[in-house]
Write a protein that binds this DNA or RNA. Structure first.
Length: 555
DNA sequence: AAGAAATGCTCCC
DNA sequence: TGGGAGCCCTTTCT
């Protein structure tokens, strides 16, 4: 830095007793001389500036670049106060002690010492038990309880990467869907509006449709009985129907027919689901309204209906798998709501499930449709065990790190569609864990009936966060979207729980696509297939053959 | 290799 | 009731 030549050598240049390489790099600077001559006095240490500013600023209003301040004091980058530091130390993140716990959001402790982090049951908050003795309880006990399996099956967790397309998309992945009939086909949507189609058993059978949407694809859905067409909703305000084979697209709904009239007027479509009985596609927008499209005539039916707070985003819609007229919605007004689709108006809401923050997703359980699971930005997964019971409070709240970050696709806990006990859920984790010196973000499998963490799935090739995860409806595999990449995970073996330490099978392939900016093809050049940037230590460990997945993690 | 950008929700007035 | 500042574990590119 130019201060090196200024007449009075500032005292901060002296190497502090515990300082490291920072002052070295300062003095080695050989910057521009002009700058140095013109503004030598601008560069001052923080403490000195406080004393001198009055004299310096007063004479004239000479146009000057903003003063550069340099301090070697330890300053927390989170709360900006001195005396402590927060951030990564190696692969371990040190919390700012002045902020509430990053996991459970309660003050008085940090993430490391959070009781929910070390709890056996992964931080379940039991809800009060209420015996309401209503007619609904009677119906539940009489008609439904017997159908719920008593013995819990062994959970099967897809725990190792089988194959993947690194940087398949040009922006982060926002949604995933398996093809309903053609085995091995994965559909993926991204933030840019592109839709990827990939046969994950064949590395090179993949396509990107780039002109269906102009921004975030929020949903990809197939209609029962029609495996040729995919339906997509997007933040460009449209619903489209696309032929999987040809890519030809029909526009079904456009909420911005007059184009751009400013951000305040732009409508976006988030939640989407199909009411099979009625043959309608339901979509919800960022103004609190529900729209429906008849899928036989491909025209909009009825008027939009306000189902959440006006001008708030409705991010999720789900039709009950057993009773399609039962609709579940959720959104930015901190509520999840149950509706009778035959009578939709804001007064006829069957139940409003309150949350402390934005609700990212709300799903009925996949088989009986009798449970509800929601993911909220207050770092809690909530489960209601029976939609016929008392819905005032959830049956359980499971503390889990899936915070909001504007740079990430919102996390959504999803049911395992193959689990007959309707208790296994999958969700990506936001905060990292130090796995043998490498910070990784696992994909968590949670038994929602107990809150127990069944498995935390990692792969050393995946250093980025995986917010989008989809379990296959029939096969024991999972697709995940992590940054711009898509991956397929399979189970190591049937009884994976008992043979944890066994050797991994080699991956089929991880195909790394070209960097798009300069056209330089760096694939296969170095053999590294990291998809994140925290790779330094990881690469070093990998070269030494140091890293095995069975290793215990540090904590 | 440090820095900037992208950009959604909350809080506060 | 709304506009604007501010923001804790990102990821990518320069």
């Amino acid at each position: 830095m130019p201060f090196a030549s200024s007449s009075s050598r500032p005292r901060f240049l002296r190497r502090a007793p515990d300082s490291d390489e920072e002052s070295e790099s300062s003095s080695s600077y050989s910057g521009e001389d002009d700058f140095e001559e013109d503004f030598p006095e601008e560069v001052v240490a923080e403490e000195e500036r406080k004393e001198d500013t009055a004299d310096e600023v007063a004479p004239g209003n000479r146009k000057r670049p903003p003063p550069i301040t340099i301090s070697l004091k330890k300053v927390c980058k989170v709360c900006k106060e001195a005396g402590h530091e927060a951030g990564f130390k190696g692969a371990t993140y040190i919390d700012c002690p002045r902020k509430p716990c990053f996991l459970c959001k309660m003050p008085g402790h940090t993430t490391m010492s959070c009781p929910h982090r070390i709890a056996m049951e992964h931080g379940v908050i039991p809800a009060p038990v209420r015996n309401t003795n209503t007619a609904l309880d009677y119906i539940f006990n009489r008609q439904l309880k017997a159908k719920i399996p008593k013995i819990k099956p062994v959970f099967v967790v897809p725990d190792q990467v089988d194959c993947g397309l690194i940087r398949f998309h040009s922006r982060r992945v926002t949604c995933l869907e398996f093809h309903p009939t053609k085995s091995n086909i994965l559909l993926s949507g991204d933030k840019k509006g592109q839709i990827g189609i990939w046969n994950y058993n064949k590395q090179h059978e993949r396509t990107i449709y780039g002109s269906i949407h102009s921004c975030i694809v929020n949903n990809i859905k197939f209609l029962p009985g029609n495996d040729a067409m995919l339906y997509t909703s997007s933040s460009d305000g449209t619903v489209s129907c696309t032929d999987v084979e040809t890519g030809t697209t029909t526009l079904l709904l456009d909420l911005n027919p007059d184009g751009w009239n400013g951000a305040a007027a732009w409508k976006m479509l988030y939640g989407m689901d199909v009411n099979i009985e009625k043959g309608v596609l339901l979509v919800a927008d960022n103004f609190g309204y529900l729209h429906s499209v008849d899928v036989r005539s491909n025209v909009q039916t009825g008027e939009p209906i306000l189902i959440h707070k006006k001008r708030s985003k409705v991010v999720g819609l789900h039709c009950n798998p057993v009773q399609p007229d039962l609709l579940l919605s959720c959104g930015n007004d901190h509520f999840a709501r149950i509706w009778d689709a035959r009578r939709l108006d804001i007064e006829s809401c069957l139940a409003s499930l309150a949350h402390r923050r934005v609700v990212n997703s709300a799903y009925f359980s996949p088989m009986t449709g009798n449970k509800i699971m929601t993911t909220s930005q207050d770092n809690r997964i909530r489960v209601w065990d029976s939609i016929f019971g008392n819905l005032e409070y959830p049956s359980r709240e499971i503390v889990h790190s899936h915070d909001f970050s504007r740079h990430l696709t919102p996390f959504r806990a999803e049911w395992d569609p193959k689990d007959t006990s309707e208790s296994l859920a999958v969700i990506g984790r936001y905060i990292s864990e130090n796995y043998d010196g490498v910070a990784l973000h696992p994909i968590d499998f949670i038994d929602t009936s107990t809150g127990k963490l069944v498995a935390e799935v990692i792969d050393t090739d995946v250093t980025t966060i995986s917010p989008v995860n989809k379990l296959h409806p029939q096969d024991y595999l999972m697709a995940s979207g992590s940054s711009r990449s898509v991956l397929i995970w399979k189970t190591r073996q049937e009884d994976w729980q008992t043979k944890k330490g066994q050797e991994r099978n080699p991956k089929q392939f991880i195909f790394r696509t070209e960097k798009k900016s300069n056209g330089k093809n760096d694939s296969d050049s170095d053999g590294d297939s990291d998809i994140g940037c925290k790779g330094k230590q990881y690469k070093a460990k990998k070269r030494q053959g140091h890293f095995t997945k069975g290793d215990s993690k540090k904590s």
